[in-house]
């Protein structure tokens, strides 16, 4: 009996009683994956709101503005809740650290939530009778909105860097594809929300965003898993594998539905819900795959050992 345990049946692979080498991410469910979803949804919603405003689609613009604001602030709240010391949330903005994706992301998120909130409030304020003549407010709102055209896409994609800049093999090795996976997932999520929240006649671009997002996510996911090889296994196996598989189905199905839904109430609803669920599943799945790849020493040791053995 080799007491020095090798739990994972990997040829020639040795470990310390099968214990993980690295620490799995400590982030909690549902906080963190839900935040990833909300951030993505908010970011792309902002992009959509900007475009809707520019192309003169006020209903879509309004729902996207609102979705962006709600998503960003709810996301920020979840993030605060996730912290071990929520009362120290503001310590995030103590410094700006380019080497820390979380620091960069915190500033992006702060900007995104502030701007999107401003943009949304200005928009909502117009509904109030007293605000009818406040042109200044509307201008300010529009300026904020335009600014979210910058922060939005960053909010939707920085989270990929956030998780890829860790020792978690299934994340770090996927740092090329993850931003596109998250971008696609965010587009699908934002498109879905806008589809559901906007009169169907005005929701065409939302459906297009949703369908494009679904396509992007599916493509990025496929490429990622193929390229990762052994390290990609956590995305296919276990709970993460089930979540990712479900996400794949929901996203592809929802995307197709979005493409054909047109003004069909039922199809829109089905598509929107499927895409939302799909996007959520993707986020939970990615987080879980990371956890699984950290918990199993094989994913840390085998690639590193191969790298060493290949080195001259």
């Amino acid at each position: 009996m080799r007491t020095e345990g090798a739990v994972v049946p990997e040829a020639g692979f040795r470990s310390y009683y099968g214990r993980p080498v690295i620490k799995p991410p400590v982030w909690h469910e549902p906080h963190m994956p839900t935040y990833l979803y909300l951030g993505g949804m908010s970011g792309v919603s902002s992009s959509m709101a900007v475009m809707a405003r520019l192309t003169g689609n006020p209903r879509l613009a309004r729902s996207a503005r609102l979705a962006a604001a709600v998503g960003a602030s709810a996301g920020a709240a979840l993030l605060a809740a996730e912290l071990g010391r929520p009362e120290r949330f503001l310590n995030m903005l103590r410094v700006f650290k380019p080497t820390s994706p979380m620091s960069v992301g915190s500033w992006i998120l702060a900007a995104q939530s502030g701007l999107s909130a401003a943009a949304a409030s200005a928009d909502l304020a117009e509904l109030l009778p007293a605000a009818k003549d406040m042109a200044l407010l509307a201008t300010a709102g529009d300026a904020a909105l335009l600014a979210t055209g910058l922060t939005g896409p960053l909010t939707a994609t920085y989270t990929a860097v956030l998780i890829a800049d860790t020792a978690v093999p299934a994340w770090h090795e996927a740092y090329r594809e993850l931003p596109f996976l998250f971008a696609g997932s965010a587009m699908a999520a934002a498109g879905a929300v806008a589809m559901l929240a906007t009169p169907r006649a005005q929701a065409g671009p939302a459906r297009a965003v949703a369908a494009l997002g679904a396509a992007l996510e599916t493509a990025a996911g496929t490429v990622m898993e193929r390229r990762l090889g052994m390290v990609g296994r956590p995305y296919r196996e276990g709970r993460a594998g089930r979540l990712m598989g479900t996400a794949r189905l929901l996203t592809a199905g929802g995307g197709l539905l979005a493409a054909v839904a047109g003004r069909s109430r039922v199809l829109t609803a089905l598509s929107g819900l499927a895409l939302t669920a799909g996007s959520l599943c993707t986020r939970f799945g990615v987080l879980e795959a990371g956890r699984a790849s950290a918990a199993d020493p094989a994913y840390t040791i085998v690639p590193q050992r191969e790298r060493l053995d290949a080195a001259p």
Binding site: M48, M51, P153, A160, Y175, P179, F180, L212
Partner: peptide, 16 residues
């Protein structure tokens, strides 16, 4: 990583 994320962000903006 940032370059890839930047490309993805641009794709989002462009696609939207």
């Amino acid at each position: 990583m940032w370059r890839w994320a930047g490309a993805a962000a641009l794709s989002v903006a462009g696609a939207v």
